[in-house]
């Protein structure tokens, strides 16, 4: 079993970080060695690095920019990121910053990623309730911009449609057509539709490839 890499990209606020954290935890529970790379040099708030202690407690290695979680507004990456490409096995999640702006940081690693023995998976996370990507055409436009900036190709789509704390099962069911249409337009597989764990039983059997997720990214008062 060789090294495997999941790259998580998408529009701002589509839920990339929460999805990345869930993937990392899931793989860890399967007994894998897991690294998570916070590649977001755009957004100083609500990011993977904010959950460093939680992840470390769960046995996951976190690689984040030196500036993350500080008041330093310096978009610089750490050389530690290169270590994930030297690993011969294990599993790495790369949580990319939003849009093409965030994905440009990924571009500098594109050659290394393409040179890995196992093909990479690049997942484009979508959320129907995000105003700028609420139509499949708009989502695809942003996906193409991300691909151009990262010099990598998206390999699958995850439907992470949600309305934060007030998400209902109906909301998720109502996003399925959008997700299918987006995947079709992209010519890519719809890998999964996520749902907060508490809605999973309600949606069981009604959603193809349902992926229950824990809501980890929260506001301080929730």
């Amino acid at each position: 079993m060789g090294k495997s890499i999941n790259i998580i990209c998408g529009h701002y606020g589509s839920g990339k970080t929460n999805f990345s954290l869930n993937l990392a935890l899931r793989k860890k529970r399967e007994g894998k060695t897991v690294d998570i790379v916070d590649l977001d040099i755009v957004n100083p708030y609500f990011r993977t690095a904010d959950y460093k202690n939680f992840l470390v407690d769960n046995g996951i290695r976190v690689i984040s920019p030196a500036s993350a979680g500080t008041t330093l507004d310096a978009p610089a990456l750490t050389s530690e990121i290169y270590s994930v490409f030297d690993d011969v096995d294990g599993y790495t999640v790369i949580d990319v910053g939003g849009d093409d702006v965030g994905a440009s940081a990924l571009g500098r690693f594109s050659k290394l990623i393409k040179a890995l023995p196992e093909p990479y998976e690049m997942i484009f996370v979508i959320n129907k309730f995000r105003s700028m990507i609420s139509e499949p055409e708009d989502a695809i436009e942003i996906m193409r911009e991300i691909e151009a900036a990262s010099r990598l190709s998206v390999t699958g789509i995850v439907n992470n449609s949600h309305l934060a704390t007030i998400t209902t099962a109906e909301d998720i069911l109502g996003s399925l057509d959008y997700a299918k249409a987006t995947a079709q337009l992209a010519g890519l597989p719809l890998l999964a539709t996520t749902a907060p764990a508490n809605l999973a039983s309600e949606l069981e059997g009604r959603v193809e490839n349902l992926l229950p997720v824990e809501v980890i990214v929260k506001l301080p008062w929730n």
Binding site: R130, M132, S134, E135
Partner: peptide, 20 residues
């Protein structure tokens, strides 16, 4: 982009200020 009306969407505070 379709102009949604009286429909619930998920927005960042900064974006919401702009759209409003």
């Amino acid at each position: 982009m379709v102009f949604f009306m009286a429909e619930r969407v998920l927005m960042k505070g900064n974006e919401a200020l702009a759209e409003a």
